[in-house]
Design a protein around this nucleic acid. Structure first.
Lengths: 198, 198
DNA sequence: TTGTGTATATTCACTGGTTAGTATACATAC
DNA sequence: GTATGTATACTAACCAGTGAATATACACAA
């Protein structure tokens, strides 16, 4: 049984993800994660050198799937650029209406660890947001928008703002409001001079 | 000495504010707060029935001063409506560049307590954001904007988004980017039909 | 086929430290 | 002498991380 090791590690990360996302990092003990994964704490510490390490793994595991979701929602949406971006917010609103939704795991973790700037989990969260920003920036640049980075950042601000506000008020309609704002900003940018192609 | 009681309570809230804001709720013990306030934990528990109670008092104490700051920044700014709202973001960027800045205390607390929806601190945070939203809505309504609530919510989304993003990346320039987005959204709304007066 | 060494994987039981909250007694002011 | 306020010293629980021992699988040799 020892040999594989990867399935065990993956099971631990899966258990940690569910608990950390639902309850928060500091409210969940390593023992609880181990119990949920069906093994003892000592075994968990064989696979991860510390709780911080486990937290980092939890966020790292969310990175690519999260971005892939955004890309899928964008790609599958009908209509032009504004509609495709707005579709991301509409899909997010649908997710947020699920009772188990608890906001953005990256932002919540970073908020919980706000006084530990060098923490690996915060670096992972920051990198995740940068990847999203960069993906949008490339799309906007391709469309010939004059300042694609600025527009990408404004969309990111609306996205993260809606995570925070929806979580606080438990009212997913803010996500659709954010989508409308995103549409307005993109349409304005498309009309501006300085574009490379129509 | 016993009689007054209010100054002692205020001193405790002040100590709690400094510690909770800088370090986070769960990282700070009641003993630390008491020590910072210059008294013992037992005395603190005479004035507050629990730590949760103290957390609620910490946020309640930030409510009015925070809103007053926004109102001041808005009132003292030169120019029209878009410029006055943008001034809030510029002033916030200046605050965020201070090394002790750690984001929005309301949002960070709500993120830390994300699984306790009935927690008094979360209700206080939600009410605070609603007050800000309502203040903006009234201003926009007075200016004859067609959908003042929607625009107020979009500005709120940008504001809270910038809190989250600036905290994560430690890059206050996002706040100015949010201010530009706010300006764009307001200018667009001002140009839209359906306005009551010019 | 059988024995043996080694890296991998897992467990039990423990330590040392922290923390929210309390029992009890004492002090001050009116 | 009673309300209010403060301090000392405690409890009971929790929790991150570790020491020492054990079990399994596989490589390789006999």
């Amino acid at each position: 049984m020892p040999r594989p090791s990867e399935p065990t590690r993956a099971r631990i990360v899966q258990a940690a993800s569910a608990l950390f996302y639902n309850e928060g990092i500091r409210r969940v003990s390593v023992d609880e994660v181990a119990a949920k994964a069906g093994l003892t704490k000592r075994t968990l510490y064989y696979h991860f050198k510390s709780k911080d390490d486990l937290v980092a793994a939890y966020l790292a595991a969310r990175d690519q799937p999260n971005l892939a979701l955004f890309r899928t929602w964008f790609a599958e949406a009908e209509g032009g650029l504004p509609a495709k971006v707005e579709a991301i917010f509409r899909n997010l609103a649908r997710s947020a209406r699920h009772p188990k939704w608890k906001g953005c795991g990256f932002l919540r973790t970073s908020a919980e660890l706000a006084n530990m700037p060098g923490h690996p989990a915060i670096r992972i969260g920051a990198a995740h947001k940068k990847k999203f920003e960069d993906w949008l920036r490339a799309i906007f640049a391709e469309q010939g928008i004059a300042d694609p980075l600025k527009l990408a950042r404004q969309i990111l601000l609306l996205l993260d703002g809606s995570f925070a506000v929806v979580q606080l008020h438990r009212d997913a309609s803010y996500m659709e409001t954010a989508g409308e704002a995103a549409r307005t900003l993109i349409e304005t940018a498309l009309k501006k001079p300085g574009r490379k192609r129509g």
